[in-house]
Amino acid sequence: MPIRYHIDSFTIFEQTLVVEGWLFADDGQVVMLWVEHPNGARLPLDYGGPSDDVVQALGPAARDCRFRYRGRSPFTAEDTSALVLHFQLADGRVGQEVDFIRTTLLREPIHQLVAQFLHELSRQEHGQVVELGARARSGVTRRHLIPPRFDYLGVDVLPGPNVDLVADAHALSRYLPPASVEAVFSFSVFEHLLMPWKVAVELNRVMRPGGLGLIVTHQAWPVHDAPCDYWRFSATAWRSLFNRATGFAILDARVSDPAYLVPKVAFTDRITHQSADNFQQSAVLFRKIGETRLDWEVEVGELDAGQYPV
């Protein structure tokens, strides 16, 4: 049966669960809503809260369609991918949504930006597409996202699965010819680059005029792959890397995946309340508009950064 919904929050922390969102059935009235795990654990949700914001989008019938729960969690964080959202209508019909959290995630701005990148790329006839940090460390590859008429090149600083070229992004122009790349993209790489400004210049050298780029990284994320974890990026930070001086124009920049920042010890002079803005992801879509004369004649080995990379 046709329904529309959105999960505003589904947070499990210290055995406490916070669930908030809305659900609207196009051809019936929802009277009951619950979340269930295949092992039988079940959590009824409080349904029927005011939803003036949803009414503005879907019309008067969508009033009082919000739901929420705040209390002890019958699930663990590891359970979330297996949970199923169930609902019952006034006429007795029962429906369910599998992987409902992932469905909500796919509506986040970063996923929309990835879709825009792939759409823009699909309008090109051919060319070389470079993925920085292509090594399938956790089994994830994105080669299949690129249309087969393009020449995909997986680049990584270390050899491994899905790596076609071992190269440091800080010296990319030593490995690729000038103006030879149609598009470049990376996921969860820029936070691990010692000098991302140097990489921006290197990208300009190897990309063709009009070439397209997509960078997805973090605005807030736990330290990982230490000690080679250096940077976090806001939506506005990208202007310092991709600008007219470096030879680029930003088409769009976004943050998504809202998150809480919860300290182990709370102080009154720290901004830790619920309304504080934090986002897990940050991304930028950009295009090369010209050449750059900028350079940063510093090698990674000169920075006394220890073992790089790990």
Rank of each mutant, 00 (worst) to 15 (best):
V300S: 14
A276L: 07
L145R: 15
C228G: 02
P44V: 04
G306A: 07
S9D: 13
S186T: 10
V265E: 12
V199T: 09
L145I: 09
G71L: 05
Q219I: 03
P50T: 08
Q280P: 02
A283I: 06
G71Q: 02
T246Y: 01
D304Q: 14
I7Q: 02
V201E: 05
R4E: 12
T11F: 09
G301A: 10
E78V: 08
V31K: 11
Q307F: 07
P222I: 02
L241C: 00
V140Q: 14
I289M: 03
I101D: 03
L251M: 03
P196N: 06
E202K: 03
P44C: 04
F185V: 01
L153Q: 13
L194A: 12
A90L: 12
D52K: 13
F87C: 07
D79G: 07
T104E: 05
N278F: 14
D53Y: 11
A179Q: 14
R293D: 15
L106C: 09
V223C: 04
R107T: 14
A90D: 14
L172T: 10
F24T: 00
R254H: 02
P177G: 13
P159Q: 04
F10V: 03
A136H: 11
D26P: 04
E36V: 10
R102G: 06
H144W: 14
V114Q: 15
K198E: 10
H126Q: 15
K288H: 00
F248T: 00
T80G: 08
V31L: 07
A276Y: 08
A61T: 05
R107P: 06
L165I: 07
G160N: 04
S173F: 09
Y308A: 08
